[in-house]
């Protein structure tokens, strides 16, 4: 019942079922005496109606839960599958420590609180069963960014060990973190891809709250590569804002100066796109977000820039990169679909 000094999470909701789980104890011991609130099911808190994302983003509480039901889901059509037929995603954690204005999670979930599932062993056993049917391409951070909370969860290390002993599995960890310390502590694997989303510095400062700076992310991707991991650069989503061309030009200039592209597995390019229903919900929840309030066009249930604006943005980036990166290494979403 006693309050504590401020910590990363001031309050932690813990499912009663996992109260005595060693993983729960381990995670709680790493936090600075948060207020612990026992709950029956994480959905009792996570799915409450009328939650304020703005309030919860500035007062982040954590939920510790046990995952039930489905553990692996088929990848969404708006995502790159890199030619993999068996493209799935899994979520040992949902929601994120970072606060990117345009993040689709704001449209998908009614809560901003991160949920950590502590039964990682069940995620692994389900993946193992899926691997019996053939090779698998698995996105590990589809509904979260695992890197900023790795010291708390250890999920990346868990998957890293699993991948090493399961040759049919290729996995992607996508991040906006600028932390470079993680990679040296992992076992190198050419089937564990670290994908770094890069944005112009002005966009990072205005709309990707809490994420690593552009320079930090570039340093981190170089470190990941040095430590023996394939690295993907994601210029996705491309956001059009006043002065966007100059900003993306500066970003590419910095990449050209600092990155040896021969060490980069590929570069993905895609403009902002969102499911229509998520976009509608995000507009309501984030009335002051300049990115969300852009008057996008709607087509086939998805919102995005008009076709000419989308094409112009993608072509612009491709033209900037082409002199330095083989064209086949640049992946556009539409080529992928």
């Amino acid at each position: 019942m006693k309050n504590s000094s401020r910590s990363l999470f001031s309050h932690v909701y813990v499912e009663r079922e996992i109260y005595d789980h060693p993983e729960t104890s381990r995670i709680l011991s790493r936090l600075n005496h948060p207020v612990i609130i026992p709950i029956e099911r994480y959905t009792d808190v996570f799915n409450r109606p009328n939650q304020s994302l703005a309030f919860q983003t500035s007062h982040k509480n954590l939920i510790l839960a046990k995952k039930h039901g489905t553990f692996l889901y088929p990848g969404a059509p708006v995502c790159h599958n890199f030619g993999n037929d068996r493209f799935f995603y899994t979520s040992t954690m949902i929601n994120c420590l970072f606060d990117c204005e345009y993040c689709w999670l704001k449209g998908m979930y009614s809560s901003a609180f991160p949920v950590i599932f502590i039964n990682t062993e069940e995620f692994l056993s389900h993946t193992e069963r899926m691997l019996e049917e053939g090779p698998l391409y698995l996105s590990l951070s589809f509904e979260t960014d695992l890197v900023p909370l790795e010291t708390l969860t250890g999920h990346i290390h868990t998957w890293n060990s699993f991948i090493t002993s399961h040759p049919g599995l290729t996995a992607e960890v996508r991040t906006k973190s600028g932390s470079a310390e993680l990679y040296a502590s992992l076992c190198p694997s050419d089937r564990m891809i670290f994908a770094f989303t890069l944005s112009p510095e002005s966009l990072i400062r205005s709309s990707e709250h809490g994420t690593g700076s552009l320079s930090a992310r570039i340093s981190a991707l170089k470190e990941a590569s040095r430590c023996g991991f394939p690295v993907r650069i994601c210029l996705d989503p491309i956001i059009r804002f006043p002065g966007w061309k100059d900003s993306y030009q500066t970003l590419v200039d910095q990449l050209i100066q600092e990155v040896d592209f021969s060490l980069i597995r590929d570069i993905t390019i895609g403009t902002y796109r969102q499911s229509e229903s998520y976009q509608r919900r995000m507009r309501k929840r984030c009335p002051d977000s300049v990115i969300i309030q852009y008057p996008y066009e709607t087509s086939n249930g998805y919102c995005g820039y008009s076709k000419p604006k989308q094409k112009e943005a993608e072509q612009f980036l491709i033209q900037l990169l082409e002199p330095y990166v083989p064209r086949e290494q640049i992946v556009r979403l539409e080529e992928d679909l």
Binding site: M1, N3, R6, H11, I39, E40, V45, Q51, H59, N61
Partner: peptide, 14 residues
């Protein structure tokens, strides 16, 4: 069970 959203404050919680 009902959960009002709370932030850290000087008031003890229960």
């Amino acid at each position: 069970d009902y959960y009002p959203d709370v932030s850290l404050s000087s008031i003890t919680e229960a």
